[in-house]
Structure formats: structure tokens, C-alpha cells
């Protein structure tokens, strides 16, 4: 079959075809790219579907999961998956036995209840797949298959879906799917999936004396206007609509002494350091003040520069610091001297 006919068949309506597709391509085009080896496909095809297609065989217990969790996950998610520090809570004790039997989490209708992962997710495959591909956040794809099973088992136990002596495996995972508290809580009955889907809300076409309530029911109070910083500095400062001065003018007029002790905040933020280190609070990595305490007065600048650039673990715990190889020499020097002397 000539290519042109193939295209017609493939796309049906010629009219809808963007112009580039109507071309009769030379046969050589279809030689670009090569067949993937089965080893290559196996290396990348890691997804696990809701019917568990793609799930590698293995198993892990709640007990093993708990140990792994405390070692690799709890710094960010809290010992019980309940932390709000780094991300929204994965589990809080708000899934009930009734939810597990009905497959609908009742608390989802209650605005006062924080929505956790276990309340929302309908498919157990989602948790397995995601933990396997993306967690721990700072070292994705470092978990073994059995470890993923164990961690999923632990989360299920935290949600009281399974007991503490439970072992999750490829053999019993489908049964546990039938206990997912919100397994019946998803719908695709809406207009936002297929291209021709029908909208649920359509606006009015009225153009004159329309019946609308124009009472202002919500606006930002004065104190909130500056919550995003001085708006005057966030808008082009000439032209028809300059920004409103929302910071007290005194702050602006005061002479700007360069504060030599100030944290090089821009560099810390731009390089993601502050995502893992608090100034005086340990997050994934130690607090910056704790680092200073440990190395102050020692000749540690070269060591720290090397550690920051190349990463590593074992000094503060098993959690690894990723290599920060993007840092230029000057920024690195600035960060190290701030770490050791001024912070």
C-alpha cells in the first residue's frame, strides 16, 4: 500500500488532517528509528497498571516496611505518613471501616478534613507504581522490588486496611485492591476527557441589563496585599499601570546596608539547598547551624566544598546529599564561607 493510502486509512478524514500529514513520504522515512531490544524495553517499561499488568513478582511485610520507612521516608513524610512539612499527608487516621466496606471515603465531603493520599486514591497500583518510580524524592529509583512491596504494605497498615503481620505480594495484591477505601470514589462521567465532551456549566450570553449580583463578596484585606511582596516591584514601573506600593515606604527609603551576615538566600534557594536544609531545623539534611557547630574552627572549607559539589552520605545519617555539580566556584566559596563563619 502506498504511504498516501496508509495515511488516509490511518486518519480517516482528509479535511481534518493538518497539512503536513497529507504528504506522500518517501519510504526511507519509515526506516528512521530502530527496533528496541527486549532488554531495553524491560529497563524502561516500569509502569504498573490498575490491573497490575507490569507488576514484578515479589513481596514485603509491614514490619520490613516500617523499618524502611523510618530509614528512607519519614524525614519528609513523618513517622506515620502524617507530616505536612514537605508534602500533604499520605495517611491520617480518617479512613473508617465503613469506607473500606463501601469503597467511598465519606470524609471527602467534609471541608474540615484534610485530604490524604489514602482517602483519595482508588487504585493500589498507583501507590506501587509511584513509589517505585519516584521515591524517595531525593533518590528516585533506588528501591528494590521487595522494598516497594514492604513500603506499600506499611502505608496500608497505617491506614488500617491491613494488619501489622501482613505481607503484601504479587499474589495477594488484587485482593487488597478490593479493600481500597475510595475504590468507588472516582468518576469519568464528565466532559473534560474526550474532545467532544459536553460541558457541565455554560455561561450566559446576556449582554444588556443582565441579572447578576454585583455585590463584592471577597477581596484581599489591606494586610494581605503585601503577602506576596511589594507589588510595586512586580509590575513594570512606568506606563499606564504601575504597581501599587504595598510595603511600608520607610522600608524602601531606608538605606540598604549590605548585611555581611545575611544568608546568601538567593543562592540557597536557586540551588535547592533550602529544600533539604533549614537554617536551624533539620529537614532531609542537617540544619545549617548544626553544620556550622560541627565544623567551626576546623580547617573544613575544602572538605565541605568537595562534599557539596560531589554529594555523599554517612556523616549525618544514611540519607545522601545529591551532588551539587552545577555550582560555580564563586557561589560555592560564598556558600562555604557563610556556612562556616556567618550563619
Amino acid at each position: 500500500m502506498c504511504n498516501w493510502a496508509r495515511w488516509l486509512l490511518a486518519f480517516g478524514l482528509m479535511v481534518q488532517m493538518p497539512s503536513a500529514f497529507a504528504v506522500d513520504y518517501p519510504a526511507e522515512l519509515w526506516q528512521l528509528g530502530r527496533e528496541a531490544t527486549s532488554e531495553e524495553v524491560a529497563a524502561w517499561d516500569i509502569d504498573v497498571r490498575p490491573d497490575f499488568a507490569g507488576l514484578p513478582p515479589g513481596s514485603g511485610s509491614v514490619e520490613e516496611g516500617e523499618i524502611l520507612w523510618l530509614d528512607k521516608c519519614s524525614v519528609c513524610h513523618g513517622d506515620f505518613g502524617d507530616s505536612n512539612e514537605v508534602f500533604s499527608p499520605i495517611v491520617l487516621g480518617n479512613v473508617t471501616d465503613e469506607d473500606i466496606s463501601s469503597g467511598r471515603v465519606a470524609a471527602l465531603t467534609d471541608p474540615a478534613v484534610v485530604r490524604t493520599t489514602l482517602m483519595k486514591v482508588a487504585t493500589l497500583s498507583t501507590l506501587w507504581d509511584y513509589i517505585n518510580r519516584a521515591m524517595p524524592w531525593n533518590a528516585p529509583k533506588s528501591l528494590q522490588v521487595d522494598e516497594v512491596y514492604a513500603l506499600v504494605a506499611y502505608l496500608l497498615q497505617l491506614g488500617y486496611i491491613v494488619d501489622y503481620d501482613f505481607v503484601l505480594s504479587d499474589a495477594n495484591i488484587a485482593e487488597i485492591q478490593d479493600l481500597m477505601p475510595n475504590r468507588n470514589g472516582m468518576t469519568t462521567e464528565h466532559g473534560l476527557w474526550s474532545v467532544g465532551g459536553a460541558p457541565d456549566v455554560v455561561g450566559s450570553a446576556c449582554t444588556e441589563n443582565c441579572e447578576v449580583d454585583v455585590t463584592v463578596t471577597s477581596y484581599l484585606p489591606d494586610y494581605a496585599m503585601n503577602a506576596h511582596g511589594n507589588l510595586k516591584d512586580q509590575v513594570r514601573d512606568y506606563g499606564p499601570f504601575p504597581g501599587i506600593q504595598t510595603a511600608p515606604v520607610e522600608d524602601i527609603a531606608a538605606p540598604q546596608h549590605k548585611n555581611d551576615n545575611a544568608a546568601p538566600e538567593a543562592a540557597l534557594a536557586a540551588n535547592g539547598c533550602s529544600g533539604c536544609h533549614g537554617l536551624d531545623r533539620a529537614l532531609v539534611g542537617p540544619a545549617f547551624t548544626a553544620i556550622k557547630e560541627r565544623y567551626q574552627g576546623q580547617d573544613a572549607a575544602a572538605y565541605l566544598a568537595d562534599k557539596i559539589r560531589n554529594g555523599g552520605s554517612g556523616v549525618w545519617g544514611s540519607m545522601a546529599m545529591p551532588p551539587m555539580s552545577q555550582l560555580d566556584g564563586e557561589t560555592l566559596e560564598e556558600l562555604v564561607s557563610w556556612l562556616l563563619e556567618n550563619n
Partner: peptide
């Protein structure tokens, strides 16, 4: 997308 009845609309793409 969570609806008032507690159902979540899944695959809301457009």
C-alpha cells in the same frame, strides 16, 4: 477534581 458529593472526577484533561 473533587465534587461536592465526594466523587472525584478523574482524567479531567481538557
Amino acid at each position: 477534581d473533587l465534587m461536592p458529593d465526594g466523587q472525584q472526577r478523574q482524567y479531567t484533561a481538557i
